[in-house]
């Protein structure tokens, strides 16, 4: 039995029904990626299973307990959520941000403890932001900033970490940096990670389990190499593609067909002429 699952889950915003009667099981100790086109309901689903959005119907269970019936801090100790594009208040330092991750472990009686300090430091170490600990979050690069936020979620010390598009708005190098970090957390710390990802190829590379969503329904789910087919991509994303093995990881690599530059492979532009450095006059 999985720790985190949903039964007959219905999620809606005011009068827009996003997800209806969904059954969902998140595999333990794995990286799960939620993929699908814009507006398919993947972010809404993540909000639903992290208690940011109250279900219209059905329920979300964590170890057979309804997450809406758990005390808020109790849930936060077991399940962390990093929303999309969080913005730290101007001047907040990395250490102060990460220390906030200890919030669910504190109360009126139990204030800041050596244990909190130790775990905060560990989170800074793991995410490799210790050297920026006293710098304001808003002065860091995109990748460093996202690592600091992940450190905060890590300091929460939950078994499950949910992330909504953790790589959006980041340069490619930072995207890889963040995904590598999450992979490391999964492999070395045994964290269950669930993330919404925009890039299907990154999802194939980093996820053990992939859930493809379209129109508020799960279209396919399973190991990426088994579920990602040309058919699935056409059905879910509405695009024709070729799927080849990723030369680095051997996971499926989705190459959209599209219309641009088709057949140009044979043009002389790739025979090296244009690649030569242009001499300055």
């Amino acid at each position: 039995m999985s720790q985190l699952n949903a039964h007959n889950l219905t999620l809606a915003y005011e009068n827009a029904l996003i997800i209806e009667g969904m059954e969902l099981t998140i595999p333990d100790g794995k990286i799960t990626a939620l993929v699908g086109p814009n507006g398919c309901g993947k972010s809404t689903l993540l909000r639903g299973i992290s208690r940011l959005l109250k279900p219209r119907g059905g329920n979300v269970l964590l170890e057979s307990q309804d997450i809406w019936k758990l005390p808020t801090k109790e849930l936060a100790k077991r399940l962390g959520i990093l929303p999309q594009g969080p913005v730290a208040p101007e001047g907040l330092t990395v250490h102060e941000l990460v220390a906030q991750g200890r919030y669910p472990h504190q109360s009126w009686l139990q204030q800041w403890s050596p244990e909190d300090e130790r775990i905060t430091h560990e989170a800074l170490e793991i995410t490799n932001v210790t050297e920026f600990a006293d710098r304001p979050v808003d002065t860091l690069s995109g990748g460093q900033r996202q690592r600091a936020w992940i450190a905060m979620t890590l300091a929460q010390d939950s078994d499950i970490i949910l992330l909504d598009e953790p790589t959006t708005f980041l340069d490619l190098a930072y995207q890889i940096e963040v995904l590598d970090l999450l992979h490391e957390l999964n492999v070395e710390r045994g964290k269950t990670i669930v993330m919404v990802l925009h890039d299907l190829n990154q999802a194939c590379r980093y996820a053990d389990y992939l859930i493809a969503i379209r129109g508020g329904q799960i279209n396919a789910q399973g190991e990426p190499s088994l579920v990602v087919t040309e058919n699935l991509v056409r059905e879910v994303f509405g695009i024709d593609c070729k799927i080849i093995p990723d030369p680095v990881t051997n996971t499926p690599l989705v190459v959209p067909v599209g219309k641009a530059r088709k057949g140009r492979l044979h043009l002389p532009s790739l025979n090296g002429k244009h690649a030569e450095p242009v001499q300055n006059p």
């Binding site: 936060a76 100790k77 962390g80 959520i81 906030q100 669910p104 979620t153 929460q156």
Partner: peptide, 10 residues
């Protein structure tokens, strides 16, 4: 830190 982050922290 924001409504969603604060809720996520419990």
């Amino acid at each position: 830190l924001g409504e969603d982050v604060a809720k996520g922290l419990g």
